[in-house]
């Protein structure tokens, strides 16, 4: 029992406020689970066991119940990730538009395969389903910025923007 992290210490005031703001839109606290996990993740990059526990406490739910939810969703990371996330579309339009070769270029530039993080912790490279930009295929997302084929001709320049 002594190892229980204190919710207020484990989550920042900003995180708690943001989660409470979400809860205000909903009929009960548990319903904010997915939003809450993402709020915590935006602040910390990923959701550690301790953060998960603190979040579960704040929402009034069991850790296992929250983890069950966390592990369902691919945008919630239960493992550490790099400073920047690259999401490479692997769905059908990008496939048709030779997304494979974009993937080759990206993995070569980063020196890691899909699902891995660069040694310097700068990038984590993940596959993602169709990003809804098929007219610009093949595409990828770096953090919250979308890049289409026309921009990705100069991959190095784009990667250089993300330290």
């Amino acid at each position: 029992m002594s190892t229980e992290p204190d919710v207020v210490n484990a989550l920042s005031v900003q995180e708690i406020d943001a989660i409470e703001a979400q809860i205000a839109h909903l009929p009960d606290r548990e319903s904010a689970a997915i939003e809450a996990l993402q709020i915590v993740q935006r602040a910390r990059g990923w959701v550690s066991d301790d953060s998960l526990h603190a979040t579960a406490q704040l929402l009034g739910m069991a850790d296992a119940a929250l983890d069950s939810i966390a592990t369902f969703y691919n945008l919630i990371y239960r493992q550490p990730v790099g400073r920047h996330i690259i999401m490479l579309c692997d769905s059908v339009s990008c496939f048709v538009m030779d997304g494979d070769s974009l993937r080759g270029r990206v993995t070569e530039a980063l020196g890691v395969e899909l699902g891995q993080t660069t040694a310097d912790g700068r990038f984590t490279l993940l596959p993602i389903v169709c990003l809804g930009a098929c007219d610009r295929a093949p595409v990828m997302l770096i953090d919250d910025q979308l890049f289409g084929a026309e921009q990705l001709t100069d991959l190095d320049a784009i990667l250089a923007r993300f330290e």
Binding site: D49, A62, A64, A65, D67, S68, T71, F72
Partner: peptide, 16 residues
């Protein structure tokens, strides 16, 4: 303390 974790063909039933 027993839950379903994961999804698709990778479903796990156990504890956290």
């Amino acid at each position: 303390d027993l839950q379903a974790f994961g999804s698709r063909g990778r479903m796990y039933f156990g504890r956290a």
